[in-house]
């Protein structure tokens, strides 16, 4: 939807490379600037929402299937780390890989069934599945311990290659540096899947499945691809989360996560890398700012009300989201200049 607008405000290649490098350096340097654990926790949350939202946007924004069941893969991934990991004696990295592979398989099977549901009812069908998953997690005491949660998930231990030392991860700052590679991998996968020929195929599927099929793009295959990859990423993230907070509860797949994802992606700009990243940044920082600023003045309920208003207002007045806003501003700034690429 906002693809065209994004394209027309693109920086030249060297500019983009420079921007990417400086953002990576910033991400690496950021925790060094502060010593407060609170701030570093906020950074980990931000990275987590970025990964979560990018994987969700692959499915919702690019394959055009708004799955309200996305957090299920996160929650089950966390349970894989908490239940299967210790029994199989896996380390942190292989645990994450296992969660990713299992969630991708689950997504493949679920996708074959659920992509039969066309149009907007797909959302409510996947919502039903998400509620079922949560009810099962809450009631299967023997496996998940229900609302009592599984506690004491092992903290990661990393063996540093070519040395004998093992690093026991416990500090927030270590977790932050552990989460960054996952974010970079997610970004690379996201960009690879959404640019070039693949990206155009996704756009075709999203805009009109029948016509996409007519020109030889199988909608089912591309939707399955997006869902499988998205679920794999978020499964690994779930595993990371389990090793980070060391507690896994049924609330890891709660619908509150779905709402936050919808807000991040649709307010940021659905189908746009820049928009999703901005959205994730804003909606990870904003609640903390509201908490810190008003202490008691802004109750959580009011915060949710504000979120609801923002979501409705953005969809009504600015369907392209913040990404569209950024594009418009940069275009206006550049109006005098000669660079005004036209999108065919």
């Amino acid at each position: 939807m906002s693809q065209g607008a994004a394209r027309s405000t693109r920086l030249p290649r060297w500019g983009r490379v420079a921007l990417a490098i400086s953002l990576v350096l910033l991400a690496l340097a950021l925790p060094r600037l502060t010593s407060s654990g609170y701030a570093i926790n906020a950074m980990i949350t931000t990275v987590r929402w970025m990964i979560f939202a990018l994987s969700f946007d692959l499915v919702a924004g690019h394959a055009g299937a708004v799955s309200l069941g996305h957090p299920v893969f996160f929650g089950v991934g966390a349970y894989v780390a908490a239940i299967l990991g210790p029994r199989l004696g896996l380390t942190f990295i292989s645990d994450m890989l296992l969660a990713a592979v299992l969630m991708a398989l689950l997504a493949l099977l679920a996708g074959i069934a659920f992509f039969r549901i066309r149009g907007v009812t797909f959302a409510i069908g996947t919502l039903g599945a998400a509620i079922i998953a949560q009810l099962i997690a809450n009631n299967a005491f023997t496996i998940t311990r229900g609302p009592m949660c599984i506690q004491g998930v092992a903290r990661p231990e990393l063996t540093i290659p070519f040395t004998e030392t093992t690093l026991r991860v416990a500090e927030p700052i270590q977790y932050y540096y552990l989460s960054l590679p996952l974010l970079f991998i997610t970004i690379i996968i996201y960009l690879a899947l959404t640019s070039s020929r693949l990206g155009r195929a996704f756009t075709a599927v999203r805009e009109d499945e029948v016509r996409a099929f007519a020109v030889g793009v199988s909608p089912l295959r591309y939707k399955l691809l997006a869902l499988t990859v998205g679920a794999g990423i978020v499964g690994a993230l779930g595993s990371f989360q389990a090793h980070y907070v060391t507690v896994v509860c049924p609330s890891e797949m709660s619908l509150a996560l779905t709402t936050t994802l919808l807000i991040i992606v649709f307010v940021g700009g659905v189908g746009s890398f820049r928009g999703v990243m901005i959205g994730a940044l804003i909606f990870s920082i904003l609640p903390r700012l509201l908490e810190a600023g008003g202490t008691q003045a802004i109750s959580p309920a009011l915060q949710q009300v504000v979120y609801g208003v923002i979501l409705v207002a953005v969809m009504v007045f600015m369907p392209g989201g913040l990404d569209d806003l950024v594009s418009r501003v940069t275009r206006r700034l550049r109006k005098a200049g000669p660079r005004e690429e036209q999108q065919p």
Partner: peptide, 23 residues
């Protein structure tokens, strides 16, 4: 608008009213 858009506003509205009445 495309039919996805009213679905999202509907979810937003639902969320809004829930927490409005909770407030």
């Amino acid at each position: 608008a495309p039919r996805l858009v009213p679905l999202i506003t509907a979810i937003g509205a639902s969320f809004f009213w829930q927490y409005f009445f909770r407030g």
